[in-house]
Design a protein around this nucleic acid. Sequence first.
DNA 1: TATGAATGAGTATTCATTCAT
DNA 2: AATGAATGAATACTCATTCAT
Lengths: 211, 211, 211, 211
Amino acid sequence: MQQKRKTTKADATRRQLLDAALAVIAERGYAEATVDRIVEEAGVSKGVAYYHFSSKADIAESILVEGIGDLIASFESVAAKAPSAREALVTMVELFASVIFKNAAFGRFFVAELWRPGRAWSEVMRGYERRLLALLEGQLVRGQREGTVRPELDPSFESVALVGMVLTTTLYYIGEEGESLGTLTERESLFVARITDFVHHANVPSAVRAG
Amino acid sequence: MQQKRKTTKADATRRQLLDAALAVIAERGYAEATVDRIVEEAGVSKGVAYYHFSSKADIAESILVEGIGDLIASFESVAAKAPSAREALVTMVELFASVIFKNAAFGRFFVAELWRPGRAWSEVMRGYERRLLALLEGQLVRGQREGTVRPELDPSFESVALVGMVLTTTLYYIGEEGESLGTLTERESLFVARITDFVHHANVPSAVRAG
Amino acid sequence: MQQKRKTTKADATRRQLLDAALAVIAERGYAEATVDRIVEEAGVSKGVAYYHFSSKADIAESILVEGIGDLIASFESVAAKAPSAREALVTMVELFASVIFKNAAFGRFFVAELWRPGRAWSEVMRGYERRLLALLEGQLVRGQREGTVRPELDPSFESVALVGMVLTTTLYYIGEEGESLGTLTERESLFVARITDFVHHANVPSAVRAG
Amino acid sequence: MQQKRKTTKADATRRQLLDAALAVIAERGYAEATVDRIVEEAGVSKGVAYYHFSSKADIAESILVEGIGDLIASFESVAAKAPSAREALVTMVELFASVIFKNAAFGRFFVAELWRPGRAWSEVMRGYERRLLALLEGQLVRGQREGTVRPELDPSFESVALVGMVLTTTLYYIGEEGESLGTLTERESLFVARITDFVHHANVPSAVRAG
DNA sequence: TATGAATGAGTATTCATTCAT
DNA sequence: AATGAATGAATACTCATTCAT
């Protein structure tokens, strides 16, 4: 118990650092985020940052891994429960957009690093990306089996397209309208509907849609 | 004449610097591209870089402005000549993807900076972005008038989605298959077709498509 | 008894720290030996190092003082028992070389710190050095009285020369041949004989030697 | 010529840095010498240090290499000119001691690094050391041929012993008496004579010496 | 006695930019 | 136009030491 309390406090420090880092990185990007600013924002000394993480890159990677990890967990849950690929895809896209709406900082960091040349992140990070894309791809393939996704579509291509599109449009929207706090506003929900509608039309065979 | 030759030589140096800068930036991103590496790659001295450009950011912005400027010019030409919005959009998307295929370095730089928080570039750069998006938007509106784009689509939303999707999928494809030299290969053309098909389905009303 | 057992355990921890510190210092020198590495090597926590020692320098000094202290004790015993200066000197040199052979880490640390500019060690350490040199010097003076050391030799000079020579040659030998475990090998004994022979010739007047 | 002047100025800066670095290192050793102190001492900015050298270690290595290089050149000249091994050895030892007398800073740095565990210096440095020892060794072998060095001596062993002895005794002497400026004082010459006498007795066969 | 989280001053190194030539 | 030496502020990272538990 004594032990536990200590561990908890150390974990709290770790969390503060991650939160502060995300905030600072979101402001000006990874490269311009300084460790000094991060620890100042977190209200801890510089030393602890290096006690808990091995480097600035390690901090950033932890943020990305954690964020994508959560997303992957949600996607997996959706994949397991959704009665149809169509519903799974819609929910996934909604989830993804929601996450970005609620944490634009993470979205910005993610989009900036996802296609960044010469990325600093390890193979671990790439593995996470692949898993995220694979979950989308899986539902697209399932949709083709179920007849709700056009057979001529390339699932691998489209999973990337979906991620790129959701990220870019949502961030663009936030840039113009401001970030969301708490639950999505009506306008935001409308916007998400626009994405799912777009995807729906792109995917579904005319015959089915007409029906 | 003396004057002209000199100017020409100066222009050549400027060109060398821009090309070298793009190559270096493409490798590891803007932040990790050093002026030292750029002048080394260009084979000129450090001082001359600051004779031709006011700062490192100025070099980078010149690259972006030039690249997007060319794209805008092409788009404008397409917009003026295309007999229908539908054809204009397809051509624009093809053009865009081609540019990236032939110059992945530029594509990577563009995608990294387009949604980057706290961007270093001036309003000039934002103006270019807006013009690029406006040209796509214009054709989407035209398409709605012509009945080949679903009226419920938001042209502003979709122009952003198009740019994001084309950039991300093309770069992803290049990452897996390697960059193109010279004209597009058959596989690359097939890939571009996949994008236009996706867009087509997302845009066109069922009735029209069915027809 | 409770007391004693505790003391014993505390002493064990102290011993572990000293041994670990010597090992770490021997690897890369005092400056590059970190307290973190030392406690890791010792298998104890960081705090405990500062419970037993007041500083990193204190740990290092303890090692040196202990090592030289042992050497001094041996030298004193030799000085008391040896029937002649000549035998005393030979035994001292043999002892010194043996100690280094069996603990190259200590030898390296000693030689590095002995002539180091701006040494971190206190006057205590200097006192030990002086005592060690004085014991050698004492036997040289005795040898002069006994007629086995040339009168024109400066005992102060030579005591330093002996220490320097034994340290450097032995470490050089170890560097080439590897450290000794347990008793000295035949080759090592041969090497030590080489040192004593050298010293013998340098010291002894021709008349005596010839005799 | 314009060119030459520039080069000269750059070289002067380089020299200033090396001199300053030696002074600072001599004070407290390599590990405690900071680049800040060095550039302050040299009266230049921090940046130039890294323009001329790749790292702090590079600066230090340059000092060592230069110093030993000079010594090697002198030794080679002596080896070529000396009529006998005996004279060559005496001159070499005198030269070596003189260099240290006139530049104790270098001597201290040299002795500290020569047997330092986990040395930072490259193979280049080791090569220099070997060449220095080889030149001494060469004269010892020659002396054995000429009959002025006892055949039972191991030249490899003794070359190391000589270097160690000269370095340690000279530095010890300087520590007690202070460094020399300009030519050697009478006392210092006397001290050097003491070394050569010691070496002489250690080397020469009794028969010869008696003769 | 022992733990390990936290501190913060210190350090090497980088790099955009300037400037004398 | 061009060179390359020089500047100095900024930055990631280290590490001896402290301290609450």
